[in-house]
Computed example of a mutant assay.
Amino acid sequence: GAGPNHSNDASSGEVNDQLSRVILFEDVTEFLFSLSSEEARFSLICQFIDFYGGKISRWTSSNSSSWLDRIMSLEMISNDISEDLIAISDLANKTQNSSHCSLESLLGSMHDLSQRPGLVKFLKNAILLSLDIFPRNHILEEAVLVTTQMYTAQENTLSTPANASRALAKNLLKKDRQDLLLCGIYGRIEARHGNIDQARKIFDMALLSTEGATQV
């Protein structure tokens, strides 16, 4: 009779152990909060993407209280600030003959995504989901096109990074042809890759859409 009893004791112990891991609403209710404004919700999304190493454009005002709070609470140098410092270092080194240790080697990279395709894919999918909540958000649109390029380059697929971002931009525009800011981002990416004629077509399309919207 010792065997079955021992088995029952073991199984009940596992059940109790599992129950002890269950998080009840009462356990976390004092830590829960709600965000009433869209700006606050979007700020949380941006911080989430930034935490995982996503590239978010600095389309913000330095006078913004949220921007100042973020800078004052930094525990380490963020990507955008480190990029500015690196650019300044490059300019300084060009004007001096003596060799200097670059800031890039001192600062390093907060988020090295070059060898992490899984994380880049996760960021891409997360930003796409965020676009459902924040449609026509040019910051998220640019971020998802950039992560698409990065992921395609890492995967070494038959599609080039430029073609991958182009296909995604076209799909997003099919859903909303009046998204003029997306047209601007799409055109700028084409111009960046040397496709000036294609970029002009995109900007022309945006201008025609603007005229049509004004007439209506």
Rank of each mutant, 00 (worst) to 15 (best):
H6W: 06
D9H: 11
S11T: 15
G13C: 06
G13M: 08
E14F: 06
V15L: 11
D17C: 04
Q18F: 07
L19K: 14
R21P: 05
V22F: 03
V22E: 06
I23P: 06
F25N: 12
L32M: 11
E39N: 08
A40R: 02
R41M: 05
C46I: 14
C46M: 11
K55W: 06
I56A: 01
R58Q: 14
T60C: 13
S61T: 09
S64Q: 04
S66R: 12
S66P: 00
M72W: 04
S73T: 12
S73N: 10
S78V: 07
I86V: 15
S89L: 04
S89N: 15
D90K: 15
L91H: 14
K94D: 13
H100N: 12
H100M: 11
C101A: 11
S105L: 04
L106Y: 06
G118M: 03
G118Y: 01
K121R: 14
A126R: 12
A126N: 09
L128T: 15
D132K: 15
P135H: 01
H138R: 15
H138T: 13
I139Y: 01
V146Q: 10
V146F: 10
T148C: 02
M150D: 08
Q154Y: 01
S159M: 07
R166C: 04
K170R: 13
L172F: 05
R177P: 06
D179I: 11
R192W: 01
I196N: 02
D197Y: 06
Q198K: 12
Q198M: 06
A199S: 07
R200K: 08
M205W: 06
M205G: 09
E211W: 05
G212V: 07
T214V: 12
